[in-house]
Structure formats: C-alpha cells, structure tokens
C-alpha cells in the first residue's frame, strides 16, 4: 500500500520504447500465445476424439453382464469378457512381479554409479530395449518359453510384458532418484547408514511419487499391448487363473472381435475397447491422485 503511494506510477514512456514498438510487441505476443494455445488444443484433440468415439460406440453394449459373464458363441446374445479382464490382470500381475523389483534395484545402481561400466551399460541397454517393437518381445517369449514348454501360457505373456515394462520403470525410477537432493543422501550416510539403507529408507521414499507414476504408466502401456499376446497368451474362451494355461486378454480380445465378420462380436470389440481405455485412464488418474495425496502427507510443495 505505502509503497505505491511513495512511488507513484509515472506515465512517461520508457527509454527507446516508441508507440509502434510497443504495439508490435503486443501483437507478437498475441500471435505467439494463439499459436501455442492452438498447438495445445491440437494435441488434446486425438485423446478427446478417441475417448469420445469409443465411449459412444462402446457404451451402447456395456452392461453388468459384460463384466461378469464368459463370452457366448457367435449369434448367442448376452455374454461378456470376464475372461479377458481377469486374463489381463493375471498377465500384467506376472509382468509387475518380474519387472518392478529388477527395474527399481537396477535404477538404484544406475543412479548411484552412473559412470561405471555397468551403470553405463544399464542406461544404454534400457534405452535400446525401450525402442524394440513389442512384437519382438512376443516372439522372444514365444521362443524361450512357449516353444520349449509346448504350450501358450499366461506366464509367457507376463514375461513379454515384463520386458516391455522394465526399461520404462527403470528409467523413470533412475531419473526420479537423480532428482532427490544430494544433501538427503549425504545426510543419511553421515548418520552411518549404508548405501543400501540410504537407498531404501531415504531415496526411495523421496522419489516414490515419480516411481509410482512410472509404474502406473508402464502398467497402462503393457496392459494395452496386443502384439505380444498373439504369441504368448494366445486366447481362451474360459476363465483362466492358472499361469500355465493360455488365457484371453483385453487387447487380444479386441483384436479377434474387431477382425471378425460378425456384427455382435464387432460391437463387443467396441465395448472391450472402452473397458481397456477406462482401465488405462483410471490407472493414470490413480497415479496422479497418489502423487498428490503423498505430497500433501509429507508437507511437500510439488
């Protein structure tokens, strides 16, 4: 209050700032702002469009039965895709159990010893791995698990998805660990904590928000993969809980139903696609909510 009274605004033009100059700057500002705004809108359009379209197409055939019933043969009304939902959960669960511990422990090493040969190898390896098409992971799991065992299995599918998740979780975790202030690490070590204790009790909790977000996004990515499923989970019409059996999964079911010539299967493909999108969206929202909640808990402002 007082300050503005003591320093009244002068209307004198600033040095070298002509009216034309000022107008031009204002226009440039408006143009650039419109451009960035337009680009942002363009970037959101595909998401909104796909979500809206699938919701409209899929919701017509969505009901409770769809989540609780097994599929019916072509032409028989009703039925659901409970086998694919359970199958996806099973396969992704296996992938998480395999990938997350390896990824997080590997990330600790890469973050703690970035310039050692092994640290460099981890970083380079995961970067290459994340660029390999998912169908290759499918063929790989097919070759090392399905062929020797002579059967398609949920386990093989889990392994394929684990390889897809591994680089995603490892790199996000590593980046998050690197963001933890060095002082926290030193503070812990100065108290006589070992590297391992420091990692688990200080660094991981401090980086947990990012790590959880990374895991959720990797799960969302893995849950949507159809290509590796063709070689591994293969598909099934029954409800499967045995890891050694072939099982239906959501993306694979969508693929089979959408490609079929039967109208009721195509309709079910839309509904299944809606379920898959809702699952992925739900995981993303959950990741955000967890992050926000934990930040509040810790009294952190980020």
């Amino acid at each position: 209050m007082n300050q503005t009274q003591n320093h009244p605004r002068t209307s004198a033009p600033l040095l070298g700032m002509s009216k034309a100059h000022f107008a031009r700057r204002k226009i440039t500002n408006i143009v650039m702002l419109s451009l960035t705004g337009a680009a942002t809108v363009l970037a959101i359009i595909p998401l909104l469009w796909i979500t809206l379209y699938v919701t409209i197409q899929g919701s017509r055939f969505l009901n409770i039965e769809f989540f609780t019933q097994l599929p019916t043969p072509v032409g028989v009304p009703g039925g659901g895709i409970v086998n694919a939902i359970v199958g996806t959960g099973l396969v992704v669960g296996v992938a998480c159990v395999i990938a997350i511990p390896v990824a997080i422990i590997g990330a600790f090493f890469a973050a703690d010893y970035p310039n050692t040969p092994l640290g460099l190898a981890i970083r380079f390896g995961t970067d290459v791995l994340s660029g390999i098409p998912s169908i290759v992971m499918g063929i790989f799991a097919y070759t090392i698990i399905v062929l020797p065992q002579r059967r398609f299995s949920a386990f093989a599918a889990g392994v394929a998805l684990a390889i897809i998740m591994l680089p995603l979780v490892l790199r996000t975790t590593e980046e998050m660990l690197k963001l933890v202030p060095r002082g926290l690490r030193e503070g812990s070590l100065a108290l006589g904590a070992s590297n391992w204790k420091t990692s688990v009790q200080v660094l991981l909790p401090a980086a947990l928000n990012g790590v959880v977000t990374g895991i959720m996004l990797a799960i969302a990515r893995a849950a949507g993969e159809a290509a590796p499923m063709l070689f591994t989970a293969f598909g099934s019409t029954g409800l499967v809980t045995d890891l050694n059996e072939s099982t239906a999964t959501l993306p694979h079911t969508i693929y089979i139903y959408a490609m079929s010539p039967f109208k009721d299967w195509q309709e079910k493909a839309w509904a299944a696609a809606l379920v898959l999108i809702a699952l992925v969206l739900g995981l993303n929202i959950l990741a955000r909510a967890l992050t926000w909640w934990r930040a509040r808990q810790m009294g952190l402002n980020y």
Binding site: L184, E186, G187, A190, L191, G192, A206, L300
Partner: peptide
C-alpha cells in the same frame, strides 16, 4: 559406515529427510 557412525556431520543447507 562405522567411521561415519562415530563422526557425524551437519551440513550447510538444513537437510531434514522428508
């Protein structure tokens, strides 16, 4: 680790754990 248990340290910037 044992050395650091006997010789503690307080740093320039306060660094409490979260």
């Amino acid at each position: 680790v044992l050395v650091r248990r006997r010789i503690g340290m307080v740093f320039q910037r306060p660094n409490p754990f979260p």
